[in-house]
Write a protein that binds this DNA or RNA. Structure first.
Lengths: 131, 131
DNA sequence: TTGCTTGCAAAGGGTTTGCATAGGA
DNA sequence: TCCTATGCAAACCCTTTGCAAGCAA
């Protein structure tokens, strides 16, 4: 994948990404910090934040920003998410909307679906002009 | 619409929703605070936050939470958004995915589309059990 | 008059950042 | 050795909250 952002492979970054890929719970930075600390007790929260930012930029992980604090997903392949409006947990949705249609996807996994949010990310006309 | 959350109709709330409905720029709480202040110079930022929260809960406005700070949308009807990855502006997408398909919708409005995020909101199996 | 809502200011929580040191290449 | 990445702690920013006063009903 894209690794241009990194000039050195540090032990911290290696452990951060390993721990993130072990789970499918979409941990927050603080949660991941605790997970990593069991292997690197002297790591700092700042280092976790810095690496998560770089990893997300380079496309190795996903940063999920809806709902207050950011959560991270070790699986960068396109897939969607369901967030529980009560407890805040985030689960994966592996079906594709293109194949199954929104209605079918929405009914999956035992969730009682209330709504969905679709957001495109791109470059607006003005920013395209500016280069 | 739903107004159960409100017990009194205050001048502050009235002006907040009026100012929000005047624009389609999805202002943040602070931006909206400045807009409202031109009409109510003594309003506090806390009041703006409190009312935006209530208005979003009652369904009168939309709270957009992706990308750091929250932005607000005075149009509560279902529609989607495009966010510029360079300048951060958020525009509306009024076409429906069901009618036009993801690919067509993504090409609209002059944006150079890089990606999209789809998130469902619902109640997870565990929280359903707990009532 | 009643008690919800406001203004004010302080506190809170997540995230970012400056700086000296450590350590990868 | 050279210079990026780290650890630490302070700073930041957005948002929430406690409390006394204000005001809608």
């Amino acid at each position: 994948m894209h690794v241009e952002a990194f000039q050195r492979n540090t032990r911290q970054r290696k452990v951060i990404i390993e721990e993130l890929r072990k789970v499918d719970t979409h941990p927050s930075a603080t949660e991941l910090y605790e997970m990593v600390r069991s292997r690197l007790p002297r790591i700092s929260l700042g280092t976790v934040y810095r690496n998560l930012e770089l990893l997300a930029e380079s496309g190795e992980i996903l940063k999920l920003e809806s709902g207050g604090q950011a959560r991270f997903d070790g699986n960068p392949a396109r897939h969607h998410h369901v967030r529980c409006s009560v407890c805040g947990r985030v689960d994966d949705v592996h079906r594709s909307i293109e194949d199954d249609g929104l209605d079918q996807v929405a009914k999956l996994d035992g969730y009682q679906i209330q709504d969905y949010r679709l957001e495109f990310i791109g470059i607006c006309p003005e920013c395209q002009k500016k280069g």
